[in-house]
């Protein structure tokens, strides 16, 4: 399978998107913006329609409009701070309705819309691959360099602000990056796969990860495994790659959650029978200590 050029490009582009989108997904989910990818891809469609109408490269206009949409959602989000998803719904309605109206003005666009909706990971050309590599490098660098501020902002923006972080600028940069990744990935994998790669690996990783860093790594691993196994299955079964990858990711999510429930069930039984209960019973009550001495010595005193 890998001796075909198109499959090599598909694995390369799919792998890059899997890594960057699934890492991004952890932050988006915790910021209650899990549907951001859906929103940006719908908004991006308005750009594609505008590009086709104005005879400009639709990929380029889609890219620009997605970035503008990402900036817009950041501003609307401030009006609905506790319910970030409302800002996403508002911008999505604006984007999709614009796309529909622009599409009706130019009936010839309908065909290219289908390719943007479902993408074609096995028909990736070199330009799209290079654009994806470029965006992935920028995205990877941003997520690595800003990992500590992003952790603080994702946890709580108020405490991050009082800690001296430029929360508004970092948050804006994060949204723009999300727009860039979605717009670059959309022509390759389609609207469906972009959101599945952002939401599904992160949804499982957040449930099973023992720590925040582990959640990012696990999410990237799940995304990569889902894309590679989905592409292989798609090749062997002659099924559409986008849908197959999304189904594989969904299968991984359901299996992961089921396994965790089983582990928790048996783990709880072991906990009841084992020494952990005694250990918990014998452990000292947590106490405040002025000098930071261990709680054991506190309790002894």
């Amino acid at each position: 399978m890998l001796h075909y050029d198109f499959m090599q490009r598909a694995f390369c582009a799919g792998g890059l998107i899997a890594l960057i989108a699934s890492a991004l997904g952890v932050y988006l989910m915790l910021r209650r913006q899990a549907l951001m990818a859906d929103m940006l891809s719908h908004v991006s469609l308005a750009g594609v329609a505008a590009g086709a109408y104005l005879s400009i490269n639709p990929t380029l206009t889609g890219f620009v409009v997605a970035v503008v949409g990402a900036v817009a959602v950041e501003y609307v989000r401030k009006s609905y701070r506790t319910y970030s998803e409302i800002s996403i719904a508002i911008i999505m309605i604006g984007g999709l309705s614009t796309a529909v109206v622009l599409m009706s003005l130019n009936q010839g666009v309908s065909k290219s819309f289908t390719s943007y909706l479902f993408g074609s990971v096995v028909a990736v050309n070199k330009t799209e691959l290079w654009l994806m590599i470029f965006v992935s490098v920028i995205g990877g660098a941003f997520l690595f360099l800003f990992r500590r501020p992003l952790y603080q902002i994702t946890f709580d923006e108020d405490t991050a602000k009082t800690g001296g972080l430029a929360v508004n600028w970092i948050s804006l940069a994060f949204s723009v990056l999300t727009g860039m990744i979605v717009a670059a990935a959309m022509p390759i994998v389609g609207v469906l796969l972009v959101s599945s790669l952002i939401v599904l690996p992160a949804a499982l990783a957040i449930r099973i990860a023992p720590s925040f860093n582990a959640a990012i790594v696990i999410s990237m691993g799940i995304g990569l495994a889902g894309v590679f196994s989905g592409l292989s299955a798609s090749y062997e079964l002659s099924t559409p790659p986008g849908g197959t990858i999304a189904l594989v990711l969904l299968f991984i999510l359901v299996t992961g959650i089921s396994v965790k429930k089983v582990v928790l069930k048996y783990g709880t039984k072991r906990f009841r029978k084992g020494n952990e209960l005694k250990e918990l019973r014998d452990s000292p009550m947590p106490r405040f200590s002025k000098d930071g001495l261990s709680t054991k010595s506190d309790s002894a005193g």
């Binding site: 915790l30 994702t154 709580d156 405490t159 720590s211 925040f212 582990a214």
Partner: peptide, 16 residues
């Protein structure tokens, strides 16, 4: 700053 409520605690923030 220690706020009264932090929303992240309710969404299962995966941190130790």
């Amino acid at each position: 700053y220690v706020p009264q409520h932090i929303a992240a605690f309710n969404v299962g923030f995966p941190s130790t």
